[in-house]
Write a protein that binds this DNA or RNA. Structure first.
Lengths: 268, 268
DNA sequence: AACACAGTTTCATTATTTGGAACTGAAAAA
DNA sequence: TTTTTCAGTTCCAAATAATGAAACTGTGTT
């Protein structure tokens, strides 16, 4: 994955800082990277200077910078399916009363780009941007199943196959078998493969040409329901996925995108 | 602002793509940048390759990439005041029933990092990441007023002073005068300077050492209230700002940050 | 068939990055 | 106090990567 000259290296550094998920010291980064001291130092300086990292002078620590938040807003608005999918997610969430996720694939990981939570309806951004494993989540498998062969091979080979529960698929072969099944029936299932007690169904979002754009899922808990009940929703979820796919295809390009930023700022 | 070697240029390109706020063609970028064709081309390739941009093969357009969303999640969680401020914003929003903003300064612009909206309580991430002008918003002025002299000079000189309404402060002198006032009384006011009908009060968030971290505001509309009513909330807002400042100072560094990622994923 | 034009590739030149090593300053150990 | 240690910082010749003018490609147009 690495290695586009200077820019690639700089991105690696960003990822590394982000990966710590807490403020990091120079020394810690030095250890976990394989850049020489001076090189890493200069990268950190430059990135900080650019606002891609932020440096706490007192504690001498780095964290990802706010400029990323600004840029991500644009990314979320333009590159993600979230603005298009929003009304559909709202509807689906209302109808099912369950947690609904919208995800896309990033570096063969699941990137959650939007969410509706049954219980606690706030909590949005804390989820958008979160990543998860692809091989043991409904959305992850739904997406992988509809990649073209080359991309699928890459994706499948890059999974970690960590055993989260005793139902987790822990081999490439098992995953491939499940993906074939998913491709045939058109939806994926997560039967407590990632977290005990959590089950879900997921449908891929595809263009009419068959290109995979993302996936949506409805999640439930085994305490409140079983699979048969959850699968009741499959036709509805599939239909929503189709609608999102169709809109995504149509939407792109009224030359100036109408108003992805939906609500008036009213800020101050 | 520009010019840290290759990395700086790459960041410029990212900003440029983001600035279009819609998918952009190569030619459009070429026109608005001053990079030579081949140079710009290679930057776009590399950034796309890294997931910092995404490229629509069909339409031949670039948009900011999803990797930014992933990185921003980390930035928001770690570098912003949002996780610390969350409960305070919730409370303030409940008590006042008005729109509440949390902002920080990024490139001398206001970056909204969190929000509670009176009317429509969802809508979070669409706001987090949005930027606004500093010289004509409550939070912007509250923050600028408490910058140290060097930073303040830079900030003041970089404002655009565009006249949004006939109450907008449109000169450096007028702004500086207002900032002095704000510094003395400890809070800022936006009297329809950005949008007609929208008024707000804002308090800076400071460390005990006086370093400015951000600001919070309560916004109202002239239809429903006047300034006297709104200013009733000043002591409360100031207190919340102080609490957030104190927590921010304390929080940073239980060596492994307890759990910035608050809620269980339950994803799939 | 000829043209126009957006997008892509090439390659010798130029400028930047690189990283070993030496330096600094503050804090811990003697 | 003096010495040691070590994280963080600076330096500079060598190595590498970025540069950009110009040539090319291929798609869609006159």
């Amino acid at each position: 994955m690495a290695g586009d000259g200077t820019i690639g290296k700089a991105c690696d550094v960003l990822d590394q800082v982000a990966a710590f998920a807490r403020p990091v010291r120079f020394a810690e980064l030095l250890e976990s990277s394989n850049f020489p001291k001076a090189t890493l130092y200069r990268f950190l300086q430059t990135l900080t200077n650019q606002g891609m990292l932020s440096y706490d002078l007192d504690r001498q620590t780095y964290t990802p910078g706010l400029r990323l938040v600004r840029l991500a807003h644009a990314a979320w608005t333009q590159s993600s399916l979230a603005p298009i999918a929003r009304p559909f997610l709202d509807a689906l969430s209302r109808e099912t009363g369950e947690t609904v996720h919208l995800a896309q694939l990033d570096s063969n990981q699941v990137l959650y780009v939007d969410k509706r939570n049954a219980a606690q309806p706030i909590e949005m951004y804390s989820q958008a941007g979160k990543v998860g494993p692809a091989y043991c989540t409904g959305v992850g498998k739904a997406m992988m199943a509809f990649l073209d062969e080359a991309a699928l091979n890459r994706a499948v080979s890059q999974q970690s196959y960590h055993r989260f529960t005793d139902k987790t698929l822990t081999s490439e072969a098992a995953l491939r078998a499940d993906l074939d099944l998913i491709r045939n029936r058109g939806y994926a299932v997560d039967d407590e493969e990632h977290e005990p007690g959590i089950i879900c169904i997921a449908c891929p979002i595809l263009t009419s040409g068959g290109r995979m754009l993302g996936a949506i899922s409805v999640t439930g808990s085994t305490e409140r329901m079983n699979f048969d009940q959850l699968e009741t929703w499959v036709p509805r979820v599939r239909r929503v996925a189709e609608q999102i796919g169709a809109e995504a295809q149509a939407w792109r390009f009224p030359e100036t995108r109408p108003s992805a930023d939906t609500d008036r700022m009213q800020a101050t």
